[in-house]
């Protein structure tokens, strides 16, 4: 970190390195009680490089804090917990803050079309790790999508065969190909994953035709009900950028379970 006068910050440097590498971890800090300011950097269960670093000043306290931090990290939650000085439950001598740094959510965008670039940019603003995938190598280039984390030249269903098992509730698949050849196998493969959002672009007519083809391919009603097709909220979007906003707004609303009315037309808590 530069000059000789600079204060060494080894824990913070480690935090920065893990953030740069997009590795999951939890940062545990005593915020009230003996040892205020003491820290632990905790990796998820099963990671041992090392499994944790630092100490809260007591082995018993470290043990329960590490256990609880892993639980919070797995749930993607950050918050305050109370313990006794040696980690006793139901005591409140020590207050710790567990800050979870989960892996960024992933978005897979299938189809290197006009709308793709705008969706990649908007998804990056929201913190997604974005992969663009299209089988046509003239279109799927990093030069066309400079903000994408990854541009893959392949059939979408083959990409999903490789990465599908890692997709979860927080992740999204957006099928923008609106071409039968690509989107039917892509949708079928996406339905085989636990991905939280599957959006498929297309006009009402494209959508109706696609439903027929998906049913012919054996997709059941429960599968079809998972699809957001046509994707996006009805905000009258016309440009690629407006469409991208309508898509990510739908993803957010689906995650939070909120109505998509204007706040000015509703009441109740805004942030709750």
């Amino acid at each position: 970190m530069g000059g000789g006068d600079t204060q060494a910050t080894p824990v913070f440097d480690r935090v920065g390195d893990l953030l740069d590498a997009e590795e999951p971890f939890a940062l545990v800090t005593i915020i009230e009680g003996p040892g205020t300011g003491s820290k632990l950097v905790v990796r998820p269960t099963g990671v041992a490089d090392p499994a944790f670093e630092g100490t809260l000043g007591d082995p018993g306290l470290d043990r329960v804090a590490i256990r609880d931090a892993r639980g919070e990290l797995a749930a993607g939650r950050s918050g305050v917990r109370h313990y006794g000085e040696h980690g006793e439950a139901r005591e409140e001598t020590v207050v710790v803050f567990v800050e979870s740094f989960a892996v960024p959510p992933r978005m897979l965008v299938f189809g290197a079309v006009d709308f793709t670039g705008a969706l990649v940019r908007v998804a990056k603003v929201l913190g997604y790790r974005v992969t663009v995938c299209d089988a046509r190598e003239v279109f799927a280039t990093s030069r066309r999508f400079p903000t994408a984390d990854e541009v893959v030249v392949d059939w979408p269903h083959r990409l999903l065969e490789r990465v599908g098992e890692n997709l979860g509730e927080r992740d999204a698949v957006c099928v923008l190909t609106h071409d039968d050849k690509f989107d039917v196998p892509a949708v079928i493969s996406a339905l085989d994953t636990q991905v939280g959002y599957i959006g498929v672009m297309g006009s009402r007519r494209t959508h109706a035709n696609r439903l027929v083809r998906l049913r012919e391919a054996g997709v059941d009603e429960a599968g079809l009900a998972r699809l957001r097709s046509p994707l996006g909220l009805d905000i009258g979007a016309r440009t690629p950028e407006e469409t991208a906003v309508s898509i990510v707004a739908e993803i957010i609303a689906l995650r939070t379970g909120r109505s998509t009315r204007a706040l000015s037309d509703s009441d109740g808590p805004i942030h709750g």
Binding site: M1, G2, Q7, T9, G127
Partner: peptide, 17 residues
């Protein structure tokens, strides 16, 4: 934290507390 990392690192390099 992720979004303020760059500024903090810059300050650290400049020797600021």
């Amino acid at each position: 934290m992720r979004e303020i990392l760059g500024d903090i690192r810059r300050w650290q390099r400049l020797g600021r507390r």
